[in-house]
Design a protein around this nucleic acid. Structure first.
Lengths: 337, 337
DNA sequence: TATAATAATGTAAGCGCTTTCAGAAAGCGC
DNA sequence: GCGCTTTCTGAAAGCGCTTACATTATTATA
């Protein structure tokens, strides 16, 4: 027993095994060959003392944190779980720890100087809207490996992972027009400057044009990827008597608000108004009617982001842009049976 | 410029400000008073050099990690987001970092020896089913602050945060009986040995008894808090012709499966069979019919868990058991309008 | 004015590891 | 057998901080 009853250190293990601490370190890390018999003695000592290396000491000595940081603007309801699942799984598989930080409001102090960075991670996963561009550039200039998710920063060659937003949007809007004959389709965009939303809007516009339909600015509203905002937006259009026969909701979350507003106004979905979303969150099939939407491979985005980041950390070349495919999932809210 | 272009250290700041590194450390930590003018010079140097203290060095020197670890068995769809939101917010407010680890299968190797523990956290939040009891006891014996969520370990005075499972279950089942005259109520329990589920079952039984109804073992099935399992369980009862007029689903997630199975069999909800859940996940109001359920203050459980853990870390007394209240949320799936 | 407190700062000893470097041991060709 | 690699192991120098403890500057007290 130690005087202070401190947890065992590498020195205790070395003493117990009758070797130097360097040798213990070697069997711990497998960095340099150690003769079988010696290694066995060390392992035994480790077991006997229930020794666990202090992470901080390793980090300090090796200058590697073995930790990936994840920066998020907020923890959303439906989107967040699958993404984190992907990230966590990939991090675990590659042996990295995961440190999470939510940056909050764009004005927030932690935005400018997040507690995650060069000093305590080997690299950062930056989800859209979680960090000011200047801070991203500062970190990048420092040489910290960075991967962006659902956001691209023009001026730099920082790897970005995102999904086929435009393509998915195009196809689902095209479906609404070609299959269901809709002509006045509302697009409920996400938060301002949100990249996913911009690309989806582009896909929406292209689908209209491809079908010889005009893009009516009156039909493009802000849903903010948020239930309440979407509900209010649709409610207001209804009240103002805006003519529309379908709603393409920027994401599934806000589709809930759309459904609520429509129902409150006595409009039937999909007969009066078809409603489609984007993301394919887990509860999408269970809505009334079951939501036709675009499946976004969210979990895979998480996995892929970690993969690229790990490459960067290892000094390998990373993919500049990873665009994961989306897929239209036809259910009932578009009018299909 | 440094030869190696290394990020600045405390020594660089000290040199620049013309003070000793100890003084820099003091203005950094506010541990000992520093004269205003000196402090100002140090702050300037920090700004000028864009200095950020290396976490590992601080941790090693101070023997405090300033990090809370969260251990989870998996990342569920609906339950996880609000819980993490609460945990993250509370951790941030109290200045702790958050390290997350998913332990996976009970048989998994990381179960026995998780990468989170005494060596890299000041304390651990342990969610039900994420760690073997022996490992919990080892950590506790070591003096590592621990807080359990939705799980209590008999033999030890480890603070536990959970919710009024029994009470909530009692009231919702009572509602089914008293208001809607249901008599053959199925209970779909969660994973085996899951504490929430056990308490909910107890509430279910007590509600039956309080109303003079028998507890029929045939009506208690395993839903495993899982959509597919629940669907299969109900499907099987339907096929076997088991007589029931209501289902109390152990959680909302599995209620989805119940709804699917019932719909597939042409049973109308709530007229033929009333369905109620537990948790009140965000999409509960949007199901068809809107789900009557018990609201579990999940986010608050997260906050509270961190609060208690921080107390423990600070050497203060923590609440042995925190039982957060639940509330029946009446919607339509029980038969109410 | 001398002296004891008191407050602010500096000095230096670690914290527990990794890693460089050098030395010892062992194998090899000749 | 002799030098020469090739392996394995140990000694020791940090990694960048915090924090006793020592020192100096300042003020209060007699």
């Amino acid at each position: 027993m130690d005087t202070h009853n401190r947890p065992p250190t590498i020195a205790d293990v070395a003493r117990q095994a009758g070797v130097s601490i360097a040798t213990v370190s070697r069997v711990l890390n497998g960095s340099t060959p150690v003769v079988g018999e010696t290694a066995e003695r060390v392992q035994e000592a480790i077991r006997a003392l229930k020794y666990v290396p202090r992470t901080a000491a390793r980090v300090l000595a090796s200058r590697r944190t073995n930790t990936i940081g994840l920066l998020l603007p907020e923890i959303s309801d439906a989107f967040f779980s699958p993404m984190l699942r992907g990230i966590e799984a990939a991090a675990r598989e590659t042996g990295f720890d995961l440190l999470i930080h939510v940056t909050g409001e764009p004005s927030s102090a932690t935005r400018a100087h997040p507690p995650l960075g060069e000093h305590n991670t080997d690299g950062l996963l930056i989800f859209t809207e979680s960090l000011e561009v200047e801070e991203i550039e500062r970190l990048h200039a420092l040489g910290l490996p960075l991967v962006l998710m659902h956001q691209s920063v023009e001026s730099h060659e920082i790897p970005t992972i995102t999904i086929e937003n435009k393509d998915g949007a195009f196809r689902i809007v095209d479906h609404l027009i070609k299959v269901h004959g809709r002509r006045r389709i509302v697009y409920l965009r996400g938060p301002e400057r949100h990249e996913d939303s911009l690309w989806r809007e582009r896909g929406y516009c292209e689908a209209l044009e491809a079908n010889g339909l005009p893009v009516d600015p009156e039909l493009i509203r802000v849903g903010a990827f948020d239930r309440q905002t979407a509900e209010a937006a649709v409610g207001e259009m209804l009240k103002r008597g805006v003519d529309f026969d379908a709603v393409f909701s920027g994401d599934d979350e806000s589709a809930l608000g759309v459904l609520t507003a429509l129902q409150a106004a006595g409009r039937h979905v999909p007969d009066d108004v078809a409603v489609v979303g984007f993301d394919d969150v887990p509860f999408a099939p269970f809505l009334a009617p079951a939501l036709t939407t675009v499946r976004a491979p969210i979990e895979q985005v998480g996995r892929e982001a970690v993969r690229q980041l790990v490459r960067l950390i290892r000094g390998e070349q990373a993919e500049a842009l990873t665009l994961l495919p989306t897929e239209v999932i036809v259910r009932n809210s578009c009018g299909c049976k």
